[in-house]
Design a protein around this nucleic acid. Structure first.
Lengths: 156, 156
DNA sequence: TGCATAATGACAATATGTTGTCAATAGCGG
DNA sequence: CCGCTATTGACAACATATTGTCATTATGCA
């Protein structure tokens, strides 16, 4: 019943994975705190930001955010109910309407972005730009090689 | 209505934060896949691993995992119902019983660890030990400086 | 000892996200 | 044009996790 042996690189990856999962919690809490003054949350902010990037369908936004389509749909419907986004007809697809920010949605996103800028500058300064960029690059690689695995056991 | 200006370091931190949140999803999916053959999930595996590290109360495990105490309690109660862990009397605390793996819990955790070792070695090899360790160190720093902020608006 | 404060587990409400299923629509090859 | 496959939104079930509240138990200090 000894523990399985891992290579040093395997150990490093395991530690990395645990670290990422541990950081996700505080980051979401911080995002909630940044968006709460505008009555929003991390998840709603993410969808607002996606819609602001350009008119896109819910499925497009889900791919951009790396989330399940149905989860983003739920958030988007809530945002639409509250008048922060609207669904515009899609000239090239009858079912897949395009999300577009309303005036109120734009104002709210702008307010959140202003708070986020102060926050990000502070932590960016403390952690160091170069290291952050290297870590982001590594994380992007990890996502790229993990995603196909996820997709193999993916939807339906 | 221009976007707020961020410093380069602030940009880097914002990108880093988004990357971490995006990676958390695939990592959880991968953890579910590793533990599913044993009838477990990522969350249950984490709690089993904490209990295996040494007898500890639910609150101890929650702190070790960086999660809310109540969420860990829910998982732990499920594991206890299924006979994977037991609650032992705590000599120094009447209420806070200590979680201990049962024989079945140990066997299941061991099986998951074996699958995880193969998986971690593979991705560790591909991403590189040194970069992974640097990223883990940076993430640990980020957790350290983010957590106090979270605690300021913390429990009750 | 006695009391204020903190820690802990129990319970509930809510937010987030995945998975599964289905019908409607697109897209493509014959 | 027809038919097969993929995409999309709708709907539901479930897992995970936070927040809030409460009673019980520990802890530290006067």
């Amino acid at each position: 019943m000894d523990d399985p042996e891992r290579t040093p690189a395997g150990d490093a990856f395991a530690e990395f994975a645990i670290s990422v999962l541990r950081l996700a919690g505080p980051l979401t809490v911080a995002g909630d705190a940044l968006s709460k003054p505008s009555g929003q949350t991390s998840a709603r902010w993410q969808v607002l930001a996606a819609a602001n990037h350009g008119p896109m369908s819910v499925a497009d936004a889900a791919r951009a955010l790396g989330l399940a389509r149905q989860g983003v749909q739920r958030i988007a419907d809530l945002l639409a109910e509250e008048g922060l986004i609207g669904y515009e007809d899609n000239p090239v697809h009858q079912r897949a309407k395009l999300m577009v920010l309303t005036g109120q949605g734009s104002r709210i996103l702008h307010d959140i972005k202003q708070r986020q800028a102060v926050w990000a500058d502070s932590f960016g300064e403390e952690l160091g730009e170069e290291r952050l960029r290297q870590a982001s690059a590594l994380i992007a690689e990890a996502i790229a090689i993990l995603k196909p695995t996820a997709r193999a056991s993916g939807e339906t």
